[in-house]
Design a protein around this nucleic acid. Structure first.
Lengths: 244, 244
DNA sequence: TGAGTTTGGCCTGAACAATAGTCCATTCGA
DNA sequence: TCGAATGGACTATTGTTCAGGCCAAACTCA
């Protein structure tokens, strides 16, 4: 990214990043889809409803939908049973491997960042968790345990990780974990879908450690969990035919 | 924040937060001041220059300047030797204590977050640092050591902490550290100005650990360093007369 | 079959935001 | 005194966002 900068970086003034409202809507909806709030086949709320919930005009919502449509995330259908339907952006293992390979450095950075934040969050959670926190984590755990069939897996997985930060009573971590997981979405999706048994095992260990108030164990299991993600990604990237 | 939510949070759709361009400029300039890029007495670049660097129109820059002027951050003077001058927003110990006291929960969260990110960053830095990284850190260290007088203390302090994340080769951490430190600006400023001898001692230990490639020591010293910030803040908040 | 409901699609008019560009007023140094 | 650099002020233009209404499609149910 930055070149060789031997002197203390001048914290130069950077261009301000200004997004129009419709762009912010796109970001939010895209993230909601990645994170499992809406899964393929789901319908987003009707435009009028979305505009109320998002606090923007319907026109802006529609602009955002056009973008998502163009990106292949959704399609729209009119009529009483119509609406904005989330599509299945099928990515072949092939295609995914290529994506991972060409973004490996960034992905590794995100994983390291997740390790930093989620380990500490788990430690704090083990100390600070309330009964309510535990029941949130447990609900997410049960949801994942219940149906390997269920397509809600991804949402429950997100809820579990977010739940740890909530139990740690730290909104900065909550935000950071959501950001990092959203940045890894395609990786997380694939890994989660593939190896959910192991993920589920880890989640069980993490949950137990937090319930028992054992910070060291919580950190250990979170580390194992996230490192597994790293391993799986490398494996996926490696098994595919060599790129250019 | 969130009430009792026993079920996995639905990740409901939130209102989009749309900032006008001038607001983004205000944020960036305010942060640059807090972080020590510009210190009292400095002049910001001329409006025309700022608008080029920020990639926005001069009118927007001017709006932002008006806001900062209103907040007492800067004042403007015309003429060849004029410009946008950074003022000294003197905060009495009194006023600071009140601010800290009324934001204690948030501040504690930020400190915990910093611990998470900076500890891991220091560990990685101890393993990954290059000669160039070390020289950046050393430059910042020397700058702080050189002049307790120098008003560039704050900028060097920022450069040191950013330098650790840079040495860790992790842009997510770099960004997170900058965000967290900016959020703590008034606290960091005060503590840094007060106890810089201790801070400097810690920095020396951290630098040595990173140079020696000792991740455990690096983490230990960063922890001590940031925990000291916490202690100092509590002390400042506690010594002041009781609030409402 | 036909009326009613729910949905996205489309249009208008007004208000606001942001831009590029120009010129003016002030201040200083050569 | 002149020229250069600066902030201050205006214009015209373009893009964004909004509230609101109406239309067209697709389904439900009496």
């Amino acid at each position: 990214m930055s070149g060789v900068a031997p002197s203390p970086r001048p914290t130069g003034i950077e261009r301000v990043a200004h997004s129009p409202v419709y762009g912010l809507i796109v970001d939010q909806l895209r993230r909601a889809i990645h994170i499992g709030t809406f899964i393929p086949g789901d319908k987003l709320p009707p435009e009028r409803e979305l505009s109320k919930q998002l606090g923007v005009s319907r026109a802006s919502v529609r602009e955002a939908i056009r973008v998502l449509e163009g990106e292949g995330y959704v399609e729209t259908r009119r009529g009483a049973t119509g609406g904005i339907v989330v599509l299945d952006r099928a990515r072949t293992e092939e295609r995914l491997a290529e994506t991972i390979r060409s973004n490996l450095p960034e992905i590794e950075q995100v994983i390291d960042f997740r390790l930093a934040v989620e380990c500490r969050a788990a430690r704090l959670a083990a100390v600070r968790r309330t009964a309510a926190d535990l029941s949130v984590l447990d609900a997410a755990y049960q949801t994942m345990a219940a149906g390997r069939e269920t397509r809600r897996f991804r949402a429950a997985d997100s809820a579990f990780h977010q739940g740890i930060a909530q139990a740690a009573k730290n909104q900065w971590m909550e935000r950071a974990i959501e950001d990092a997981r959203a940045a890894l979405w395609m990786a997380v999706d694939k890994v989660a879908d593939n190896v959910f048994r192991t993920a589920q095992l880890h989640h069980g260990q993490i949950l137990a450690a937090i319930r028992d108030g054992d910070p060291d164990a919580a950190e250990r299991y979170v580390t194992a969990h996230i490192e597994l993600t790293r391993t799986d990604l490398l494996r996926i990237a490696g098994t595919a035919p060599a790129p250019r």
